[in-house]
Design a binder for these strands. Sequence first.
DNA 1: CGAACTTTTGATCAACGTCAAGGATGGTGG
DNA 2: CCACCATCCTTGACGTTGATCAAAAGTTCG
Lengths: 226, 226
Amino acid sequence: MPLTNTLSRLEAHLQPTGSDLPLAAVFDEAAGAAVAVRRAAGEEIFGQGEAAGFVYLLVSGAARSCRVLADGRRQIGDFHLPGDVLGLEAEIEHRASAEAMTDTVLLAVRRTVLAAMAAQDGDLARQLWSLAVRGLQRSQEHASILGRLGATERVAAFLLAFARRLDVQSEMELPMTRQDIADYLGLTIHTVSRTLSQLQDSGVIDARASRRVRLRRQDDLAELCA
Amino acid sequence: MPLTNTLSRLEAHLQPTGSDLPLAAVFDEAAGAAVAVRRAAGEEIFGQGEAAGFVYLLVSGAARSCRVLADGRRQIGDFHLPGDVLGLEAEIEHRASAEAMTDTVLLAVRRTVLAAMAAQDGDLARQLWSLAVRGLQRSQEHASILGRLGATERVAAFLLAFARRLDVQSEMELPMTRQDIADYLGLTIHTVSRTLSQLQDSGVIDARASRRVRLRRQDDLAELCA
DNA sequence: CGAACTTTTGATCAACGTCAAGGATGGTGG
DNA sequence: CCACCATCCTTGACGTTGATCAAAAGTTCG
């Protein structure tokens, strides 16, 4: 039983929403509503167009949610870290797929069960609403980046935002590939790589390895975001 | 009292969410919770960074929500039509401003009142959640457009989506300027104008006037969206 | 050690932005 | 009613950014 105590591992990640955390109760494995799920790096959690049967709480690892166009172009809508809830934005079927970027553990709850619990519990309903609102804010911020920033600004904004999400001061491990970053920022892998190299050359960041980045001058980076 | 019966005018616009419409009760002017507000074209409904005191239901007219960067670049997050609820995505202060694009009538409800009603009424809470989810879906769709489509694809997607929202078969009146369209699509006014001219030359649309567009071949337009 | 994949870098090209100018439209006041 | 002014829209010429094409270097894993 390697997953018996996923919740305690998780609690550190759940954002304090002001009150207690009804979601923690929803995803209580012991109570039987939630089922632990593992996904290896690269595996799909749910697919675009699939029926939205479950809602997932990311316990450990990292994931991406993406849409793929008919001709193969891919847009990553968001990256997900422990404490994030996935699949909540669907009403009937998933508009985007979710894939594990690293080995991942999730807790799955049936959407119908979640809905029933929310109908009983106003705090839970409010927390679900709050999650949707926060997702909306993130998505609108993302749209602003995609619509109005140049390549350097996009990469700088991404680095700063991701460091803040990981809550690291300077050095961090990126769970995603260059292609993922490119598909998130609406650029090509080439432009992302070049831009990172430029930032490195100008001393703003220190790319100690392709996945390991140190932010040397966060204020300079912030200025680059315009 | 020119606004006594805004609700009946409105009811035609409110999307059927499957059940009855608790929101209609919230915005019931006669009951005293809602106050009618008028804005002339170009006026601000609420501002970026302002405290989020009210939630607005758009009764008539059209509005845009936008963010402005320090250097003046503007990104329009969404356009709003009658039946849309504005300002719901804020938690404490507005991340975006909302402005009337035409003369507009809205009903305003204090956020605290709305929250109190939602705490009493599960159906209302569910409808608010549903609104947030739908906003999130729209925003993610928007991000995909901004991140991965070329200029022609963006304009074609915009025309089709807006026609669908207006529920018109072919000919429609656009409430926004070219600059608004450009700021929504992450393009310049020049590119938007040129692209519309090309679509006109290729016979896909008929721009009878700058604000009046007829979609001649919707299927061709859909193909252009990739 | 080799194969597959990821990342980096260079050279070239095209799409879209910028600069510049002119035309259409609509509202206002004489 | 018309002239004027302020926007808004369109179009052309040119420049820049980032995509594309191509290839090599680094990394991971069997």
